[in-house]
Design a protein around this nucleic acid. Sequence first.
DNA 1: GCTCGAATCTTGACTCGTTCAAGAAAGCGG
DNA 2: CCGCTTTCTTGAACGAGTCAAGATTCGAGC
Lengths: 142, 142
Amino acid sequence: MTSPDIAALLRESDLRVTRPRVAVLGAVHALPHASTDSLIEAVRVELPEVSHQAVYDSLQALTSAGLVRRIQPAGSVARYESRVGDNHHHLICRTCGSIADVDCAVGDTPCLAASTDHGFTIDEAEVIYWGTCPGCSTAVTA
Amino acid sequence: MTSPDIAALLRESDLRVTRPRVAVLGAVHALPHASTDSLIEAVRVELPEVSHQAVYDSLQALTSAGLVRRIQPAGSVARYESRVGDNHHHLICRTCGSIADVDCAVGDTPCLAASTDHGFTIDEAEVIYWGTCPGCSTAVTA
DNA sequence: GCTCGAATCTTGACTCGTTCAAGAAAGCGG
DNA sequence: CCGCTTTCTTGAACGAGTCAAGATTCGAGC
């Protein structure tokens, strides 16, 4: 994913192409599931002068444009990923907080069938699998 | 659910029976999906002098004892409910934040079958249905 | 009942992710 | 290249939740 590619993505979404936004979107692509802090660090490798606010603003703009997805598991800070629109879910380690992607077991829009909808209009089913990652399992055993 | 009942629940879980804990557990039963703030308010109706810290401590003790469940949807403060151990899920309104319970469509431990487990040991599958509640749907239309 | 040790509660300060606000800078249509 | 608008910088503020020290309370054993 090169800068021109990223710029094109931004333009397609009617977003202005600014240096911070290009760097932020590039960082989200390079670091899946990264926290805002990690993204700020990553962005500052290229643009040492960006403010944290610019990164927050960019992430919000990218999120509402649908170019990145924000995930915020209980007890964690916000994280961002660039896989959007494919209805995948997450596997999160309770010990170290690491996140892995999982495709939905049931199909394209899985679990969207709640048993009772209480009159709600459901537009998304978010699934989080909680567990222990291989690294942390062995660490405990050892 | 009366005070003696609640005291019994606490004792069964090897928790000391204190006034704040009884009041907190009672409040969680009375107000499903309440935020910590609401619970503090509710508890202070009976015990005007409880500190917020006591409520936080009690909720943590009750949560780790498995007597209450903590839920924390993205962009919301922590909420608590007394339905535990029945693997139900939640339906959350994006507009007003209201939460409704839904039993799992697939069975007792649903969706626990991720397509790839990446070596993780999965112990819980949390499902959140995002949408718009009946009240907010009509409000927009009107 | 009473005593004592450990768990719990009060008080109050503090952290940290995130948001708010005002003014300066930069993107982009014309 | 101009000017308008959006975006970025700077710096302060907010709020849920946590930490810490000392006082209180629970409850097992006598």
